[in-house]
């Protein structure tokens, strides 16, 4: 597993915060309580980027907050904070464990430097942002992975933050929404990254046993050990249109079977057709759909809130 999907595409607008200090850090780790976060601010558009769908140069303003190519409709990848920004009710997001960073369990050469470089480039500490928020007025726990952070690979920080997010949701009887994206396991953490698959899956199971709703949203790309753990364990699994969703990497499969695979192999639509996704939801309709599903479970006449 753990096949990195190397992309030459650089997501635009990674640093949507004016400065990192805007993030209010959660110090009270044990209780998972955090202070309120100011409204998320976006930077002025400063870059344009070539759309991978049609090859046209698109400015950030043209792509809009949903980051969709106005020429061909292709989705740009969203950073974790951008995802939270378009999903959470204004001013409702409170981040958990914002200061947690990777250690180096295997003493892997140059790993600390790689982490520090990536943190500087992306403005986030690791590949997932978690917290609590409201979506359409409904309380929930939210997590969003960020493919600009070492292909959103899952190491100890991703595993720990997700496990804590589910445990917070259990303690507070909240639903969980996770936006998955990943190239797979964090190679530099070796076997410890593999163990995060069991750890996150166990936390999902515990939340499920407590009667909690878990909505997994698969975004481009969701592969490897993340597909083979929490991403495929949602009570309801949603995918964004045309997202790459699979277990093994395309090149690995092509190498095994000595054949070229069709373009639509391992897309969200492929997964829907094969029965592994409940529904495909457009990015601009996602927030409303999530709110509706949460309301069906936790709203009046539904579960506890």
């Amino acid at each position: 597993m753990a096949f990195f999907n190397k992309s030459k595409y650089t997501p635009l607008g990674l640093n949507i915060f004016k400065k990192k200090d805007d993030i209010v850090i959660n110090k009270a780790v044990e209780s998972h309580e955090a202070q309120s976060l100011e409204d998320i601010k976006t930077e002025e558009p400063v870059v344009s980027v070539k759309c991978r769908g049609c090859g046209k140069e698109i400015t950030k303003a043209e792509a809009g907050k949903y980051k969709i190519c106005p020429k061909c409709g292709k989705y740009f990848r969203l950073g974790a904070r951008e995802r939270v920004y378009i999903t959470a009710d204004k001013g409702s997001f409170v981040e958990f464990d914002a200061n947690m960073t990777a250690a180096n369990p295997l003493n892997f050469p140059d790993y600390e430097e790689k982490i520090a470089d990536t943190q500087n480039k992306t403005g986030i500490k690791d590949a997932v942002v978690t917290g609590k928020c409201k979506i359409g007025g409904q309380d929930c726990v939210i997590g969003a992975m960020d493919s600009s952070f070492i292909m959103a690979s899952m190491g100890s920080v991703v595993g720990e933050k997700l496990a804590r997010a589910f445990e917070y949701a259990i303690a507070n009887k909240l639903p969980v929404v996770i936006f998955a994206a990943s190239g797979g396991a964090r190679m530099q953490e070796g076997i410890i990254s593999l163990m995060q698959m069991s750890k996150t899956s166990a936390a999902v199971a515990k939340h499920s046993d407590a009667g909690g709703l878990y909505i997994s949203v698969l975004t481009d790309p969701t592969t490897g050990g993340v597909t083979a753990s929490f991403a495929m364990l949602g009570d309801i699994i949603i995918a964004e249109p045309k997202a790459l969703v699979g277990f093994a990497g395309r090149r690995v499969i092509e190498g095994t079977i000595k054949q070229k695979l069709p373009d639509d192999f391992q897309t969200a639509e492929f997964q829907l057709e094969h029965g592994f996704v409940d529904l495909i939801v457009k990015r601009e309709e996602m927030r409303d759909k999530l709110a509706e599903i949460i309301k069906l479970h936790y709203g009046k006449g539904g579960g506890e809130q």
Binding site: S201, A202, A205, S208, D209, T227, A228, G249, I253, T256
Partner: peptide
């Protein structure tokens, strides 16, 4: 786990995930 077309079509990721989920409890 096998990396092939049929394995992907039949949900290799989901199959492994479900085992982790169920084994944990």
């Amino acid at each position: 786990a096998y990396c092939g077309v049929g394995a992907e079509e039949r949900g290799q990721g989901e199959a492994i995930a479900k085992n982790l989920f169920e084994l944990s409890r």
